[in-house]
Design a protein around this nucleic acid. Structure first.
Lengths: 252, 252
DNA sequence: TGCTCATAGTGGTAAGACCACGGACTGACC
DNA sequence: GGTCAGTCCGTGGTCTTACCACTATGAGCA
């Protein structure tokens, strides 16, 4: 079968198979904005009748749309148009990256890419409210150093706030998409650093430096500070690796 | 219904609805590698029997997997596991970004983000073969300055080669995902620059500078050169905007 | 030896029926 | 009169059966 969502539609003249015809029918109306988030679709039986297909065929198309996160089908209530979110994006990314080794390490590269560009844009575009929001999260981060769970969440919120301040929808969506993958490596790292004052203080300094250069609206310095921050992670991973190869007090 | 692909599966004990049970069944086997690309699934009737669901239900799940690009269902032949590619990723991205204004401009930010990080990694990791490949594309780019179509493709190939040289799967996939969106703005820009020697020579210089600093394996200089290159585009867009507001010889 | 056509197996579609869930209406009870 | 519970209707969820369309395979024929 033809893969979904062909931006350019070949053989537009012919009538494709029923299911994919229904699928493209709704997709186009979703892309064009004819169907807005929250709209309720007709009942399956009526839709099937209106579109001239059987109910199973219609259901295949509807279910596919739901799988892509475009529809929210609720038992006993109906099908509703869902606001496009990045969850499907993240899922697709996970599926694409799944066969590859070292995903968790490699996805960090994507994160660095997004955030470094985001902070450059943020230096240009961030409003006072954006800066205030970042400052608030920074305070929360400092206050939650002793709690791994809360601290990790604050850390994530800090970086998220920067990406938000960039004002770029693309960067935000991609960042949102890789978040689930990031979180997995994030929490375990936090668990390791927990209780090591040298590391945590270095972490706070790094975050503060990032914020300050952003507040000064200096893109080069901000990116440098951010990369510096990411190096802490690299450093940590390296130490962990070395420690793992040290035969002392290591349990098999 | 529950959204597909929950990485953490809630209510794992209970049996979810038939269709989504079948869906997760295959998804898990795809993620775990138990099903490899090229494998042929059993016939729908047999699968339905084996999994204890009716054929329409099975078909809904199979169709959904096909929509996500995980399966390739061929009429009269069977269903085959497809190698995960970034096409779905790109489609999902397009759908997520569709409601937003200025997508084509904004997606450039994602591109800059990816490529700037990629070239930094490439400075560390690129093999001699990678560098040679980039050099070859650069030659092709210089040779095809007079042909907008060919030149545009060479341009794209150049940047793609850099991302490849980074050796990061995440960066490559994301770059691949935004490619379809990039191409649209790419070709029209080429069409504008076509025939302006000052622009084209500047373009060549920029690409050459990027390659040279990459060959020298200097990350900072390479990123700077790349950003310089992207500024050409900004500059061009600005000029176009100004030209559009000049009332002289402009047709409504 | 080569071609052609019948056939079996596959996905694609249709129709009808029933079940499970949610909400709204209506009734009785407090 | 207000509140609660039960019933009914509309909805999605599923099953069954049957038939159509496409592909490949192999047997039969020239």
């Amino acid at each position: 079968m033809t893969t979904l969502i062909d931006i350019v539609r070949p053989n537009a003249g012919e009538a494709p198979g029923g299911a994919i015809r229904v699928f493209t029918f709704f997709r186009d109306r979703l892309l064009s904005g004819e169907l807005k988030a929250g709209d309720r679709l007709l009942a399956e039986r009526e839709l099937a009748l209106a579109l001239g297909v059987s109910r199973p065929v219609l259901r295949e198309a509807l279910r596919s749309l739901a799988m892509l996160g475009l529809l929210d089908i609720q038992h006993g209530r109906g099908a509703f148009v869902r606001a496009a979110d990045a969850s499907v994006l993240g899922q697709a990314l996970t599926l694409c990256l799944a066969p590859q080794p070292n995903i968790l390490d490699d996805v960090l590269q994507a994160r660095i890419a997004i955030e470094c560009q985001a902070i450059r844009l943020a230096c240009e575009r961030a409003s006072e409210r954006d800066l205030q929001a970042i400052a608030d999260v920074l305070d929360a981060l400092v206050a939650s150093l002793d709690e791994p769970e809360l601290g990790g969440r604050a850390d994530h919120a800090f970086h998220l706030a920067i990406v938000r301040a960039s004002g770029s929808g693309s960067l935000m969506k991609i960042h949102e998409a890789i978040s689930p993958l990031l979180i997995r490596s994030h929490v375990e790292r936090r668990r390791d650093t927990f209780g090591e004052p040298a590391i945590t203080s270095r972490l706070v300094d790094a975050h503060r430096a990032v914020f300050l250069s952003l507040a000064r609206r200096d893109p080069d310095q901000a990116e440098r500070a951010l990369r510096e921050h990411f190096l802490i992670g690299d450093d940590l991973r390296r130490r962990k690796l070395i420690a793992a190869y040290q035969p002392q007090e290591k349990q098999p």
